[in-house]
Amino acid sequence: MTNVLVFRTNINSDKRIHQAACRLCKLRGICRWSIDLEDSDCVLRVETDQLTEADIIRLLTRAGFQCDSLN
């Protein structure tokens, strides 16, 4: 079963999306992800069947991004 995890981030530009993509693509278990630059919270949505919110938050904060759960 695929879960949709939703996060508030500071990924607010194409450059930062590219930087985050380099990290997210290294994780197994992500089916699809997207970032809404139009939203004031720069919402990241991750579809996964294996990962937890903590996994995503840990990965992105270690990479220097702000990332908080919106669920």
Rank of each mutant, 00 (worst) to 15 (best):
A20C: 06
L37G: 06
C42P: 00
A20V: 06
R32L: 11
M1H: 14
R16P: 00
V43A: 08
Q50K: 15
A63K: 04
C22T: 11
A21S: 15
A54D: 14
F7K: 04
E47Y: 10
L44F: 08
N71G: 11
I56L: 11
W33Y: 15
N3R: 15
L60D: 04
C25A: 12
D68I: 05
L27W: 03
I35Y: 01
R58M: 12
T48A: 11
C22A: 13
N3W: 08
D68Q: 14
V46R: 00
L70F: 09
E53A: 14
I30N: 07
F7L: 02
A20L: 05
T52G: 13
N71D: 13
L70T: 04
R58D: 14
N3S: 13
D39E: 09
D49F: 10
F65T: 00
Q66G: 10
E47W: 11
C67D: 01
C31H: 14
S13M: 10
G64T: 12
E47K: 14
R32F: 12
R8T: 04
L51D: 05
D39V: 03
C25R: 15
C22Y: 06
T2S: 12
A21V: 02
T52I: 07
R16I: 03
D49Y: 10
T61L: 05
V6D: 03
R62W: 05
N10T: 07
A20K: 01
L59S: 08
V46M: 07
L5W: 08
R23D: 04
R23G: 00
N10C: 04
R23W: 09
I35V: 15
S40H: 10
D55G: 06
E53P: 08
D41G: 12
G64D: 07
D36L: 06
